[in-house]
Amino acid sequence: MEYIVLVITAVLVKNILLAQYLGNCPFLGTSKRMDTAIGMGVSVIFVMTIATAITWVVQYSVLVPLKLEYLQTIAFILVIAALVQFVELFLKKFAPPLYSALGIFLPLITTNCAIMGVALLVILKGQTFPEAVLFAVASGVGFTLALILLAGIRERLEVSAVPMALRGAASGLIMAGLMSLAFFGFVGVDGSLKALIQ
């Protein structure tokens, strides 16, 4: 039951893109077309889950026992960068169709702050390993949901008469703002669910 609340919170109430401001560069960059949005979303879910699992283990079985918590930032970014490289090589070798679909998004993911952000958030919240992995999956799903919704809107905008100054990133940001406002409707849902359990 608590896990359900965790998932609902991460996907809808505290959507990583629309409420926590993480991962906005690829959000605008890959939301112009639906197919790139889906590709990016799937890659993010995949990498985010593995990255969070590994960084959680690194934090609690390497950094904390050795009292090296202050090197967290360096350790996490290296783990993520190495992981992305590894996933790329692995897919290229063993799953070429998947590689040709996701390949171009993978290098972009290293500098996607959503991945690093979720890895840091689970440590900050002191979550247990299963909670952390579930949170990562749910955050990835939330990211994909927002990305696909925005791509749908922006594909429409492409064929409408938008004023010159608002074309591109400007209208994308304003649309994202309106979506974020719509997601505000979910605020409090997590609280009432938790209260129900209490």
Partner: peptide, 8 residues
Amino acid sequence: HKETPGIG
């Protein structure tokens, strides 16, 4: 604390 804002 890490309680729910507004409740806990």
